[in-house]
Design a protein around this nucleic acid. Sequence first.
DNA 1: CCATAATAGTGTAGTAGAAACACTAAGGAG
DNA 2: CTCCTTAGTGTTTCTACTACACTATTATGG
Lengths: 229, 229
Amino acid sequence: MPHTYEYPRPALAVDCAVLGFDEGDLKVLLIKRGLEPFKGKWALPGGFVRLDESLDVAARRELAEETGLTHVFLEQLYTFGEVKRDPRGRTVSVAYFALVKLGEQQVQAATDAQAAQWFSAEQAPALAFDHARILETALGRLRNKVRYVPIGFELLPRKFTLTQLQHLYEAILGRALDKRNFRKKALALGVLEATKEQEQDVAHRAARLYRFDEETYAKLVKKGFNFEL
Amino acid sequence: MPHTYEYPRPALAVDCAVLGFDEGDLKVLLIKRGLEPFKGKWALPGGFVRLDESLDVAARRELAEETGLTHVFLEQLYTFGEVKRDPRGRTVSVAYFALVKLGEQQVQAATDAQAAQWFSAEQAPALAFDHARILETALGRLRNKVRYVPIGFELLPRKFTLTQLQHLYEAILGRALDKRNFRKKALALGVLEATKEQEQDVAHRAARLYRFDEETYAKLVKKGFNFEL
DNA sequence: CCATAATAGTGTAGTAGAAACACTAAGGAG
DNA sequence: CTCCTTAGTGTTTCTACTACACTATTATGG
């Protein structure tokens, strides 16, 4: 069946706000644009959607092409469709929100990106298009979501200490948390499994390493638990 | 500056999941399609985005054109972009979520809709395209959102009784609530203003009418209050 | 090897909010 | 004036959140 609708169409892009956590604060992954417009400026990785791929697939493809990242946590964020947001002409962008375990994969620029680099998310450089707004939206989503869903584990290595987890939450929420209360609550969720291992190469008492137990988590979700932390 | 990207583009549509509340349960506004594909089937109101209008504007325009509704609460919901979701060819749809105060406006079908009609949201008829999934997503958003934001007032007349409010929350959350606790909590929010009026034409003790005080609400939001109910 | 520095790890008491629960008040209908 | 229907109201119990300070362990450096 042919399309009966024959008006001109906006271009359709995907852009990814990729967040990581390191050295006590949130990072965002930016690429340096190799093409006009905004050539030489920092931007979120992204590109145009092809006819034969879904939006999710397009987002993963662009992310892999421009930064080398694969197998990251990815979900749709918001669709930005102001008329003048792209100087080339009408372009609608479906923004995605990605979380990566920093240190497990190296990023490498490719295709039309000159460079890919992590920046502090709170003080990123000026961005191309309306990407600053997309980034703001992503940080807001993270702040909200982390209160109800144990999503923070997507930002930590597979094994982590409770102090690392606490620092992550403090960075996301922007305020200090009480150590004893935090540990009590975190363990009470029932999705942290203590390993027999400890932190290595530290100049003080070594902390126990925990891992996030996805199986237990999945079971609890089915029972309707919610996971405020 | 010309577009450098010249691949074929998906068509871009908006669709609105319009929810209302009446007779103790949630309703959704559907239109009967006047054109192929799915001619004669029920669907969410929606249509294609024009080059000179933002997504929000497109959603309001289509809603007004097909159902006559204006000045409704409207926010973006999710963007649906599976490859095969439209038999005419690749079409991406930005879905919107609308809440209307039922009884304040009459709906009337127009343009390419043969009819516009309210249905029970939980047991709507079979829908065109992937609109059933969009409706599910909208109901989920409502259920979630209503727990943190006093959004329910968008679904009630300007003046309402506490019992009406409670029934609304019960319909959204799908469970019974305790009357005394509910009233205590609702009033404790500080955004309900008692009017001097009462319910009319009821065959029993008349209930006091309240109204939602948007000004107080705006002030409290600024102070960072949250509004679980 | 002893002292120091750094972070890990732990419990309790007080307070505030959530949940459970049943009767009296008011008004219209017959 | 009786009955039916819904409005409106407090208290107690239990649970969850908050505030708060010391001991334990390990590496380092004198």
